[in-house]
Measured scan of single mutants.
Amino acid sequence: NKASVVANQLIPINTALTLIMMKAEVVTPMGIPAEEIPKLVGMQVNRAVPLGTTLMPDKVKNYE
């Protein structure tokens, strides 16, 4: 099972992601793969992401 990116804290809307905000966890359904964490640093979320929520591609601005 592959790990996904999960919010390590509440991430407010329009916040630029940092390493400390994210952790890798095996979750269902799968979100953004954990190996993409370095790519996500500096990207902004387009909505608030509660603690423990899986980061889905549609929650990150300009994620492809």
Score class of each variant (00 low, 15 high):
Met30Lys: 13
Glu25Cys: 14
Lys39Gln: 12
Ala34Gly: 07
Asp58Thr: 06
Ile37Glu: 03
Gly42Asn: 05
Lys59Gln: 15
Thr54Glu: 04
Ile11Ser: 01
Glu25Tyr: 09
Lys2Thr: 11
Ser4Cys: 06
Arg47Lys: 14
Leu17Pro: 01
Pro50Tyr: 08
Ala7Lys: 06
Ala16Cys: 13
Met21Ala: 04
Thr15His: 05
Glu36Arg: 09
Met56Thr: 15
Asn46Ile: 14
Ser4Lys: 01
Met30Phe: 12
Pro29Gln: 06
Arg47Tyr: 12
Lys23Thr: 09
Leu40Pro: 01
Pro29His: 04
Val26Arg: 10
Glu25His: 09
Asn46Glu: 07
Val60Gly: 00
Glu64Lys: 12
Met43Val: 04
Ala16Lys: 13
Pro50Gln: 10
Leu19Gly: 06
Asn46Pro: 02
Leu19Lys: 08
Asn8Tyr: 07
Ile32Lys: 01
Lys23Gly: 09
Ala16Asp: 10
Ile32Gly: 03
Gly31Asp: 01
Pro29Gly: 05
Thr28Trp: 15
Leu17Met: 11
Met56Ser: 14
Leu17Thr: 02
Gln44Asp: 06
Ala7Leu: 03
Pro12Leu: 09
Leu17Ile: 12
Thr54Val: 10
Ile32Gln: 01
Val60Cys: 06
Gly42Asp: 04
Leu19Ser: 08
Ser4Arg: 00
Met30Gln: 12
Leu51Trp: 11
Ala3Gln: 10
Val60Ala: 02
Ser4Thr: 03
Val5Tyr: 06
Tyr63Ile: 03
Val5Met: 03
Gln9Leu: 10
Gly52Trp: 05
Pro50Leu: 09
Tyr63Cys: 06
Val41Tyr: 01
Gly52Ile: 05
Lys61Tyr: 10
Met56Asn: 05
Gln44Trp: 09
Ala34Tyr: 05
Thr28Phe: 14
Met21Trp: 04
Val26Phe: 14
Ser4Ile: 04
Pro33Ala: 09
Asn62Glu: 09
Ala3Gly: 10
Gly42Ser: 00
Leu17Gly: 02
Leu10Pro: 11
Glu25Asn: 07
Gln9Pro: 03
Ile32Trp: 03
Val5Ala: 08
Pro33Cys: 11
Asn62Gly: 15
Thr18Lys: 10
Thr18Phe: 05
Met21Ile: 03
Lys2Cys: 15
Val6Glu: 00
Met30Ser: 12
Val27Ser: 01
Met22Gly: 03
Met30Cys: 15
Lys23Met: 07
Asn1Ala: 13
Pro12Thr: 07
Tyr63Trp: 13
Gln9Cys: 15
Glu64Leu: 15
Leu51Asp: 10
Lys61Leu: 11
Met30Trp: 10
Met56Lys: 04
Thr54Phe: 05
Tyr63Pro: 04
Ile11Tyr: 04
Arg47Leu: 10
Gln9Tyr: 06
Leu55Val: 05
Asn14Ile: 06
Leu51Asn: 12
Gly42Thr: 02
Glu35Leu: 11
Lys39Phe: 13
Pro50Val: 08
Val41Arg: 00
Thr53Leu: 04
Gln44Thr: 13
Met43Ile: 05
Ile11Val: 02
Glu36Asp: 12
Thr15Tyr: 07
Val26Ser: 07
Val6Lys: 02
Leu10Trp: 12
Asn8Thr: 15
Glu64Pro: 13
Val27Tyr: 02
Gly52Met: 04
Glu25Ala: 14
Leu51Phe: 13
Pro29Asn: 05
Pro29Arg: 00
Thr18Tyr: 02
Asn46Tyr: 09
Met43Ala: 05
Lys2Glu: 10
Leu55Cys: 07
Pro57Met: 05
Val41Asp: 00
Ala3Lys: 12
Ile20Pro: 14
Val45Cys: 07
Gly31Ile: 02
Tyr63Phe: 07
Gln9Ile: 12
Tyr63Glu: 02
Glu36Trp: 10
Thr15Ala: 10
Asn62Asp: 13
Thr28Asn: 13
Leu55Ala: 03
Asn1Ile: 14
Ile13Glu: 14
Val26His: 12
Val45Lys: 00
Glu36Asn: 10
Tyr63Met: 02
Leu40Asn: 02
Asn1Gln: 14
Ile13Cys: 13
Leu10Arg: 10
Leu10Ser: 12
Leu19Pro: 08
Thr15Met: 08
Lys61Gly: 05
Ala7His: 03
Ile13Pro: 11
Thr18Ala: 08
Ile37Gly: 00
Ile37Met: 12
Val41Leu: 09
Val49Met: 08
Leu55Asp: 05
Lys23Arg: 15
Met30Pro: 14
Val41Phe: 00
Ile32Ser: 04
Val45Ile: 05
Val45Tyr: 00
Glu35His: 13
Gln44Met: 12
Ile11Lys: 01
Val60Gln: 02
Glu35Asp: 14
Met56Ile: 05
Thr18Val: 07
Val45Phe: 00
Gln44Tyr: 15
Asn46Thr: 14
Leu55Lys: 01
Met43Lys: 11
Asp58Val: 01
Asn62Tyr: 11
Leu10Ile: 08
Ile37Asn: 04
Pro12Arg: 07
Ala16Ser: 12
Glu25Asp: 11
Ile37Ser: 01
Ala34Cys: 09
Met22Ile: 07
Lys23Val: 11
Glu35Arg: 12
Glu25Pro: 02
Glu35Ile: 13
Thr54Ile: 07
Gly31Tyr: 04
Val5Ile: 14
Ala48Cys: 13
Asp58Gln: 07
Thr54Leu: 05
Lys23Phe: 08
Glu35Met: 11
Val49Asp: 07
Arg47Val: 15
Gly31Met: 02
Ile11Thr: 00
Val49Ala: 04
Pro12Asn: 08
Lys2His: 13
Leu17Glu: 01
Ile20Arg: 14
Gly52Pro: 04
Leu51Val: 13
Lys23Asp: 05
Pro29Lys: 03
Lys2Trp: 13
Leu55Ser: 00
Met22Leu: 10
Glu64Cys: 15
Val5Arg: 00
Gly31Ala: 02
Leu17Val: 00
Gln44Phe: 15
Arg47Gln: 15
Ile37Lys: 00
Thr53Asn: 09
Ile32Cys: 04
Leu55Trp: 02
Tyr63Ala: 02
Ile13Met: 12
Thr15Arg: 00
Ile37Asp: 02
Glu25Thr: 08
Val27Trp: 06
Met21His: 08
Glu36Phe: 12
Val26Asp: 07
Asn62Pro: 00
Met22His: 00
Ala48Gly: 06
Ile11Trp: 03
Thr28Gly: 03
Val6Gln: 02
Lys39Pro: 03
Asn8Ala: 15
Ser4Phe: 03
Val41Pro: 03
Lys61Glu: 09
Glu64Asp: 12
Glu35Val: 13
Met22Gln: 00
Met21Cys: 06
Pro29Glu: 06
Lys2Met: 12
Pro29Phe: 08
Ile13Ser: 10
Val49Gln: 06
Val45Gly: 03
Leu10Gly: 07
Met56Ala: 06
Met21Pro: 02
Lys59Trp: 15
Leu19Arg: 11
Ile32Tyr: 01
Met22Pro: 00
Leu40Glu: 01
Lys39Arg: 14
Pro57Trp: 13
Leu55Gly: 03
Met22Val: 04
Lys2Ile: 13
Val26Met: 11
Gln9Ala: 09
Thr53Arg: 04
Leu51Pro: 14
Leu51Cys: 14
Pro33Met: 06
Glu35Ser: 14
Ile11His: 00
